[in-house]
Structure formats: structure tokens, C-alpha cells
Design a protein around this nucleic acid. Structure first.
Length: 412
RNA sequence: GCGGGUGUAGCUCAGUUGGUUAGAGCAUCGGUUUGUGGUACCGAGGGUCGCGGGUUCGAGUCCCGUCACUCGCCCCA
């Protein structure tokens, strides 16, 4: 039926697309493993409360972007819009507080009811890491260095800037929020309509407004750095020194704030200008307040998430699929021998394609299309003599080898 | 959620001020080649012009609606 289409904002992944996704996820998983991060897979859906209590009542994610529904049993369920809340819930419900520090890596689908654009789907994929139970700045440094390491390995670090800021501890944050609100309240006429709205809900977000008038106003507003208390300042300085020691380049961005309420101290974003308005490729920060806010024991946390679709648009061509070997029977009489030979080769570890139909010419043509590196040709003569004709499909050279020696000749 | 752009073959795109049977390249399939792929040549198939309605003697072309994609805003990875 021609009117059957994927649901808005969803896509089928196959061929090169999924190879790109896997290349990203596999590289990230392997590198995170070197830092001691083990994989965690939490459920696709959680009790709605898990997200409403952690993301903040005012965030757009909670107010308009969640896929929330009621089950037959009357539970309120939400498809996860992000990964951190689920990991925190797992930490609490699994009683893992005795096992810190804990390091988790995840690669999962996320769901947000947003208007689709390039690099923004309703079902999308994130990789992410969470480091739980380390209150010191070395945790922030490690996690940022890990992100930078992964993007370097993927070959995209050259197009990406690391932006860094500190939101301070809750005391500093509250002090600054009051100062900023007081200042901006005196300039209501100049503020954009969006920012007037933000002044009520989340005044810090005005700092990264794109409206020109807002930007000018913000330039003269109180500076966040002036409101950090000594603890916060020392913490931020230690993060910067740690990154410098590891040769991770970064830019300070005083306008960088987080959309989600549970962040404190370090906030960072890895951005590119190659993706238009969806330039943030990896982002995260410290969220010491998250687990306590969900009713768990006071536990420090820091981590990030990266958008796989966005990274997939940046990485170079993924490694080509393995080039198979084609087993080609000359005529119908040799098909069964060919099938047996193909099976034997597969058991020996080779990737083998066996054309499903057609004469020798068609099968070779198909082998060529599959980028087979060699053809193993079996005709009446070969079967009689216990040999095969081995043809190199790049050079066109061919020779007869015994079936016993075939595996030796096929080794790369 | 708000504002703009675009929808013609599997893909990339032509299609004149509304006028016969809607075209090209690539891809696909077949043949030149009954034990040899890639290159070349020859040929074939493939379209309810996104969908629905309207105007008109006549709509791929004009109008309205709708869906999808896309750019920006919002938000975010």
C-alpha cells in the first residue's frame, strides 16, 4: 500500500546508515571500556514520575515533548526522552550506593515529540556515559576527556569545539539567578517575547538567547563568574587545569547553560557549525542534585550524552562491509556441491556468498556487485578432479587449486 | 507549537504563457557471450506528476486543503 509511511519523525536504518550508527556506538563503547565504563541498558519506558521529578516541571521536554500514556493497568508510563534519569533510577532501585564509584555507558533509542528537522527525529539515538559517586573535579575532567577521545577516534574532533562553563553549586546558582532576574526585570521592554516567558520559567536560558536585542542586554548583565562562591570557583578552576593537563582544548562560554534542572557546577557542550541549528553533538555536566531529588542517597554524578544521528552526519565513510567470497557452480549439476563447499568455508570463518539462481555469467555478475574479492568456480571438470578454479575478481587472474588447499589460498 | 521553502520513474532532475501518448542521466532487467564478472554496444520494463478537492473544453503546470520532507524559531543530543 502506497500510503503506508513510517510514523512522522521515525526512520528505518539500513545499509550505510546503520553501519554509521554501529561504527559510532562500537567505537564509543570500546573507548569507554578503556576508562572502565561498563554497558547499562535500562527499560525503554519508565514511570512518568521518573522524568517529571528529575527534568523539572518547567522544561519543554516535560511540558510538551514526552510520549506519555496510560497502560491497561492504569500506570502512567513515559518513553524515555533521555538517558540519565533512567540510570539514576536504576542506581536507586538496585541499591547500588554501596558500590560507587560506578561508571556506565549506554547506547539507546530516545523519544521526544518534537517537530522533526535534520538531526532531530522523534525517535533518535544517543550514546552516553554516567560517572556516579565521584564528587571531585577529576570526574568532570575524565568524562570530558572521554568524550573528546571518542570524537577524536571518530575523526570529527577537528570540526568540533568544546565549550565549558560553570553553573556553580546551588548557593551560587540561586544568588546569580536572583541578580540576573532583578537586572532583566528592569528591561522588560527590550526583552524578546520568548525571553519574557523565560524570565518566569528559567531565567538562565536567556543567557543563550539568539535574539539580537537579548544578546546585547545580556552583554551588560551581571556575570555568572562574579557570583560563584569560593567552592564553586575552585572547582571550576580545577576542571580547567585538569583538561589543560590532558591537552583537551576548550573555550569558556559564560552563556552556556543547561536545559535540564538537575545540573550544577560543570556544564559543557561539544558543538559544530556543520549541522545548522542542530549543532550540539555531545553535551552534559555535573548533576549532584539528581539522585537525592529522586529520593536516593546523596550521590555525586557527572556525565554526557551524544546524538548518534548527528555524529553519523559528520563521520567519514564507515568501513566497508567485509568482502565475501563467491562460490559459483557452472551448471545445475554442481549446485549441491557448491552449497556444501560454501557451508564448509563458512564454518572455517570465511564470508561466503552463493548466488541463488542463474548461470555462471549471472552469478559472477552478482558476485561483482557484492564486491566479492574472489570467485570459487565449480564445474564438471573441477568436481571430477577434486579441485576448484579460484578467480581473483580484482586482477582477473585464476588458477586451479585442490579443495583441500582452498582455505590456505583464501586467507587474506 | 510558530514562520518560510520543496514534493514528477528506485535515485538525481528537465518539463515553455495551462494544450496530443510526461522526458533524460544513473540504477534495474534482458541481449551481444551455451565455462567467466567489471568496460563497451543494443534493447526492455518502470509514473494514478505526494494525496484529496476545485477552476477550465483541457491541469504535472492555476487555486484551496492535507500529508511528508526541508530551513529558521522554540527546545535540545
Amino acid at each position: 500500500m502506497s500510503n503506508l509511511q513510517p510514523v512522522r519523525g521515525t526512520h528505518d536504518l539500513m545499509f550505510d546508515d546503520i553501519r554509521r550508527h554501529r561504527a559510532i556506538e562500537d567505537a564509543a563503547f570500546e573507548i569507554a571500556g578503556r576508562y572502565g565504563y561498563g554497558e547499562i541498558a535500562t527499560p525503554v519506558f519508565e514511570a512518568t514520575e521518573v522524568f517529571t521529578r528529575t527534568l523539572g516541571d518547567t522544561s519543554d521536554i516535560v511540558t510538551k515533548e514526552m510520549y506519555t500514556f496510560e497502560t491497561k493497568g492504569g500506570e502512567r508510563i513515559t518513553l524515555r526522552p533521555e538517558g540519565t534519569a533512567g540510570v539514576a533510577r536504576a542506581f536507586i532501585s538496585g541499591g547500588l550506593a554501596q558500590q560507587t564509584p560506578l561508571k556506565f555507558f549506554y547506547r539507546e533509542a530516545m523519544f521526544r515529540y518534537e517537530r522533526p528537522q535534520k538531526g532531530r527525529q522523534r525517535q533518535f539515538h544517543q550514546i552516553g556515559v554516567e560517572l556516579l559517586g565521584v564528587p571531585g573535579p577529576q570526574a568532570d575532567v575524565e568524562v570530558i576527556a572521554l568524550g573528546h577521545h571518542i570524537l577524536t577516534a571518530l575523526g570529527v574532533a577537528g570540526n568540533i569545539k568544546v565549550e565549558l562553563n560553570s553553573l556553580g553549586d546551588s548557593e551560587s546558582r540561586a544568588a546569580y539567578r536572583d541578580a540576573l532576574t532583578a537586572f532583566l526585570s528592569g528591561h522588560m521592554e527590550t526583552l524578546s517575547p520568548d525571553s519574557r516567558e523565560r524570565l518566569q520559567r528559567n531565567p538562565l536560558r536567556i543567557l543563550d538567547s539568539k535574539d539580537p536585542a537579548d544578546r546585547q542586554l545580556v552583554a551588560n548583565a551581571p556575570r555568572y563568574s562574579d557570583y560563584l562562591n569560593t567552592t564553586s570557583k575552585d572547582f571550576f578552576a580545577a576542571v580547567q587545569e585538569g583538561l589543560a593537563r590532558l591537552d583537551v582544548p576548550f573555550n569558556l562560554n559564560p552563556g552556556l547553560v543547561r536545559g535540564l534542572d538537575y545540573y550544577s557546577h560543570t556544564a559543557f557542550e561539544f558543538t559544530t557549525d556543520a549541522l545548522g541549528a542542530q549543532g550540539t553533538v555531545l553535551a552534559g555536566g555535573r548533576y549532584d542534585g539528581l539522585i537525592p531529588s529522586m529520593g536516593g542517597p546523596a550521590t555525586a554524578g557527572t556525565g554526557w550524552a551524544a546524538g548518534v544521528e548527528r555524529l553519523a552526519m559528520l563521520i567519514p565513510e564507515p568501513a566497508a562491509a567485509v568482502r565475501p567470497i563467491a562460490v559459483v557452480p557452472v551448471g545445475a549439476a554442481e549446485v549441491q556441491v557448491a552449497e556444501k563447499l560454501a557451508h564448509t568455508l563458512r564454518l572455517q570463518g570465511f564470508a561466503v556468498e552463493l548466488g541463488y539462481s542463474g548461470d555462471m555469467g549471472k552469478r559472477l555478475k552478482r558476485a561483482n556487485k557484492l564486491k566479492a574479492r574472489a570467485a570459487v568456480i565449480l564445474g564438471a571438470d573441477e568436481v571430477r578432479d577434486g579441485v576448484v578454479t579460484l578467480r581473483d575478481l580484482d586482477s582477473g587472474e585464476q588458477k586451479k587449486v585442490t579443495q583441500a588447499e582452498l582455505a590456505q589460498h583464501l586467507k587474506v
